[in-house]
């Protein structure tokens, strides 16, 4: 009997240096070194700061992952690495390292799409993914709705944000409310003590927008609406009810995201919805998605929060899927692609 593929995955597309090791659908190691604290005072990820941190963290993080999994590099069947989309300089650190590990150990390398990896990571928690599935991927860098026909090669983009990513809106509203960066966790916490009482706008949900942007998102108008509401309070000399603003803002984001995701499932006749990305760690989006999926008989799959944020295990999970599917590995000269389209699951074959 052939054993399932053992794959080491490297992720450096943003501010997390992630190294994961999986065997088939089994997670063996998930080590993450984050430079998030170095970015906090800038209110957003500074690419060069992230790249420097990736360089410093790379070898120690790989070693920690190997130690945790109790294997050596010689044991793995393949190396997988995020080739895009993401910050160009940050991607390059992971890809260059992955090539060196692959070359030194004589292993095949797979340059993979970060968004597809966010979908693949769910297989570590819930087993093989029924295909087709709809995937909602939401983080500080992306907000996309995808139809996954074949995780090893056929993914159709249905929609994406036309301005800010959902996570970006959380960061900006958090800053407005005097909450720390990244904004997702503090807003989630504040919202638990707040009431959903302010009717903030739902972007691209009006009838006139749906024709062209049925599965697209917009969070820029929402962000501005929150800012205006808060400023009006401040100018009137009234206190800002931070918890209520957080709860109402969060509701507006989660309402649109889950509504459009469920709409995509119904429209395409798909019975499985996967949610991934850092925003999928938000407690309200998980609850609301569950409620709406239950109502329509859709199976909801959301990995645990640690697997939703960027990590190496998701890259390893996609790599293991590709190896098992017999996908061709990449060349040692495979390029990074900061704008890698989701129609490409792998790069540089």
């Amino acid at each position: 009997m052939k054993t399932e593929p053992l794959v080491l995955g490297i992720e450096t597309s943003c501010d997390e240096t992630g190294v994961g090791i999986v065997r088939g659908h089994t997670l063996l190691a998930d080590e993450v070194a984050s430079s998030v604290e170095e970015h906090a005072r800038f209110g957003g990820v500074v690419p060069e700061v992230a790249s420097r941190a990736h360089y410093e963290a790379m070898v120690p993080t790989v070693q920690r992952a190997l130690d945790t999994a109790g294997i050596t590099l010689a044991d793995v069947d393949a190396i997988a690495v995020t080739a895009g989309p993401g910050l160009a300089g940050a991607l390059l650190v992971g890809v260059a390292a992955a090539k060196a590990y692959a070359l030194a150990a004589g292993k095949p390398i797979y340059g993979v799409n970060h968004l597809a990896a966010h979908v693949a990571v769910d297989t570590l928690e819930h087993g093989p993914l029924p295909e087709p599935a709809i995937a909602l991927l939401v983080s500080g860098g992306h907000s996309s709705l995808l139809k996954v026909d074949d995780l090893a090669g056929r993914v159709e983009p249905l929609g994406a944000t036309i301005d800010d990513a959902a996570g970006e809106a959380f960061d900006k509203v958090a800053r407005l409310l005097g909450l720390p960066f990244p904004g997702g966790p503090p807003i989630d916490r504040a919202a638990r003590d707040g009431q959903i009482v302010i009717p903030f706008p739902r972007g691209l949900t009006a009838a006139r927008d749906l024709a062209e942007h049925r599965f697209d998102f917009s969070f820029s108008g929402l962000k501005t609406a929150v800012a205006r509401w808060v400023e009006a309070r401040q100018r009137a000399g009234e206190p800002v009810p931070v918890n209520d603003v957080a709860a109402s803002f969060q509701e507006a984001v989660c309402d649109v995201l889950t509504n459009k995701a469920v709409d995509a499932c119904l429209d395409r006749g798909v019975r499985t919805l996967v949610i991934g990305g850092g925003v999928a760690a938000n407690s309200r989006i998980r609850a609301l998605a569950q409620e709406r999926c239950d109502r329509h008989g859709i199976t909801l799959r959301v990995p645990r929060p640690k697997l939703c944020t960027d990590n190496g295990a998701m890259v390893a999970a996609l790599g293991a899927h590709l190896v098992a599917a017999g996908a061709a590995p990449g060349r040692l000269g495979l390029p990074t692609d900061s704008a890698m389209p989701i129609t490409l699951v792998t790069a540089g074959q």
């Binding site: 260059a96 590990y101 030194a104």
Partner: peptide, 10 residues
């Protein structure tokens, strides 16, 4: 960094 991380990983 591309060269240095390559050297370090090798």
């Amino acid at each position: 960094r591309a060269g240095m991380v390559t050297a370090a990983a090798l």
